[in-house]
Design a protein around this nucleic acid. Structure first.
Lengths: 219, 219
DNA sequence: TAAAAAATTTAGACAAATCTAAAAATTTGT
DNA sequence: ACAAATTTTTAGATTTGTCTAAATTTTTTA
């Protein structure tokens, strides 16, 4: 598989996991930052290789083999991200681009050894689950901060948007994975939240709250 | 730069460092395991980018920029090799292929941090020197085992041939970098050597002896 | 339901990297 | 020094991945 093919497979997987069942050529083109005609070409190629189900004008989806492939790439990507943060001291907003390159390195043994070096992590630095060696994959079953009722206490366990801009915003406001937060009040006007975090009161916009995964703590 | 361009630059550097001053299209084609016509095409491309001096029928050599580029790639390759052995537990015969892929990862910061993690190593697992961040490069000034006079005592510091076959042969015979060896006798007939290594006498063919770099210990 | 709009595919072109076969230049041998 | 051998380059084709522009299919809407 070429890097480009792998990137398409990964993009299809990610789109499929945002709830869409049939992925349109246009949607995939936008995700890949390319033209729909290029997508059509690539879908034929991937279809011939048995990685996707594709009938023209009918959209595309991953085959069993395609899903397995996607999970393997995502596993590599996320393990490398853990490595970059834990072993090399990168910050969580710096690792994505480098992991995009590292995920294409071909060596099963390398990934096994890396997994071991990192002590078999289950989540990447953004709180995303790392697929297992044999394709085991648990979805985010977590709620978004924006979905919690007032008075809830929850742990911050992940980010939905993992863009560098958002991550640096969180850093600036001392919001990190593992933090405990309590929802004090929800503003009717703009759905912003007042939360208690590290003994400090914080005003959080709805946009932010709907990009933070939390795990509710039952009291 | 594409992976292919980087591989050509590296190949030219390695050929230049085996003593050849002008590198022929054929020699480079053989090194790259490709056809001379492909080499000609690539030399034009690299010449246009200012990485090589190339005039048709006149052979090729690296420009200052080309040399800098080559050293940067070799630095990455060798640092990754150290990582694979020291941190992931690979053996020295397994690391080359994986490092061939890793050397193309683009991130200056990544290499700086890797260098730091590895505690700024000066040699890779095969005893080859690692170029510095700013292009400092020291040649192997070492002698080959085959060049030492009888009675010499020397440390084994590197391998000239770093093919997996040769490296596994050395493993099988418990010859490792850092070992001290004394030359007991040289056989007139086939230039093989009898050496003392780890309190053990060993017969070594001329072929082997001319692929082991040693550093003489003056007594 | 038929025309308009939107989405998708086809056709043809391009760049990178390679190949084979043929032509041209250089080197070698006598 | 000149023909033969060798090396190198050119010409034209192929594959991957992309593009634009045109054609086609599907969806929407009036």
């Amino acid at each position: 598989m070429t890097h480009s093919e792998e990137n398409y497979i990964k993009a299809i997987f990610h789109l499929a996991n945002t709830g869409i069942e049939v992925i349109s050529t246009n949607a995939l083109a936008e995700k890949m930052e390319t033209k729909p005609s290029s997508v059509t070409d690539m879908m034929r190629r991937l279809s011939k290789k048995g990685l996707v189900h594709y009938k023209k004008y009918q959209g595309v989806s991953l085959t069993t083999l395609g899903t397995k492939t996607a999970l393997s790439i995502i596993r590599k990507h996320r393990l490398w991200e853990v490595f970059l943060v834990e072993k090399l001291g990168f910050t969580w907003d710096e690792v994505h681009e480098i992991a995009e390159q590292l995920e294409h390195i071909k060596s099963e043994k390398l990934i096994d050894k890396l997994d071991e070096l990192l002590d078999f992590p289950k989540f990447d630095p953004h709180g995303d689950p790392i697929p297992g060696k044999n394709g085991e994959f648990m979805e985010h079953d977590n709620q978004l901060l924006s979905q919690l009722p007032i008075g809830s206490v929850a742990l911050c366990v992940g980010v939905k948007d993992s863009s560098a801009v958002f991550l640096r915003f969180l850093d600036k406001n001392s919001i990190a994975l593992g933090n405990k937060m309590k929802i004090i009040e929800k503003e009717e006007f703009d759905n912003s939240l007042r939360i208690l975090l590290n003994e400090r009161e914080l005003q959080i916009s709805q946009q932010i709250a709907s990009n933070l995964y939390v795990k509710k703590i039952e009291l």
